[in-house]
């Protein structure tokens, strides 16, 4: 079954064409890797899917139904959950309060008194189920490592009934050990098959590790779409190097 599809999405900012006729297809439970050079249109595509930008033309279909994403909260209400690079975590709050931020469990509704013990046990249950290892749920988020923080951000999104997760460079600026936390988490989510995931990434090795399919975005278009098992790092590298050479030639000829 198809979770999300875009048809010929285009977006221009003034005279800069960021995206031209990008068509992406995401199957239910699939992990799709989105590769591309800086400025290839990855962020624009992601921001359209989160409802932050509106496309100039083209369609977005969610489980076969065409949708017009009006805002980030609209997209979120439809189950499209972005995990931002800044993670939207509050350093000063502890782990479970971050997980429940804006979805707090309250004891006496109108007074808004927080039910910390219930939030804590639910967060613990959820993190254990996702096998995210955090030394303590009571520590401030600032005390955790980059990988742990990212894992909590992802877990929070999944927890909020996300159907489609959009991960923007989840392992950027992370060491191998830290990246492994996230890659393991993505793999487990894939095994469960409840959410479909689009991962924007630079690191080919990681993409091959976790993704079912790979799309290459070049100059605002999807230039390559293949199952991970049908391609190789060599082939992808060749495609990107070719693009680079072509770009070099264009520059030197003018």
């Amino acid at each position: 079954m198809e979770a999300l599809r875009t048809e010929n999405l285009s977006k221009a900012f003034g005279r800069v064409v960021a995206l031209k006729k990008a068509s992406v297809r995401l199957e239910q439970g699939e992990v799709l890797g989105l590769l591309g050079d800086n400025g290839a249109g990855k962020s624009t595509l992601m921001k359209i899917l989160t409802g932050f930008h509106r496309p100039d033309s083209g369609r977005i279909l969610l489980r076969g139904q065409e949708v017009h994403l009006r805002s980030v909260s609209h997209a979120r209400a439809l189950g499209i959950e972005p995990v931002y690079q800044d993670l939207a975590l509050i350093n000063e709050l502890n782990v479970y309060r971050n997980m429940f931020l804006q979805r707090e469990i309250r004891s006496w509704g109108p007074l808004g008194i927080l039910n910390d013990s219930l939030m804590r046990s639910k967060a613990k249950e959820h993190l254990t189920a996702m096998r995210v290892n955090i030394p303590s749920l009571d520590v401030q988020i600032s005390k955790l490592s980059g990988g742990q923080r990212q894992a909590i951000a992802v877990a929070r999104s999944v927890f909020s009934d996300a159907k489609i997760l959009l991960l923007d460079e989840p392992t950027a600026a992370m060491g191998v050990k830290e990246s492994a936390i996230i890659l393991d988490l993505i793999r487990r989510l894939k095994d469960k098959g409840e959410v479909s995931i689009i991962v924007v990434a630079h690191n080919y090795a990681q993409i091959f590790d976790v993704c079912d399919r790979i799309n290459l975005l070049q100059n605002g278009e999807i230039s390559f779409n293949s199952r991970t098992s049908d391609t190789s790092i060599e082939e992808l590298t060749r495609l990107v190097v070719d693009e680079y050479r072509a770009a070099r030639e264009r520059v030197t000829n003018t």
């Binding site: 980030v72 909260s73 979120r76 931002y84 800044d86 993670l87 939207a88 975590l89 509050i90 350093n91 000063e92 709050l93 931020l101 804006q102």
Partner: peptide, 10 residues
């Protein structure tokens, strides 16, 4: 603590 992040979460 994180005005942008808090706003992103809603």
């Amino acid at each position: 603590g994180n005005a942008l992040g808090a706003a992103e979460v809603g």
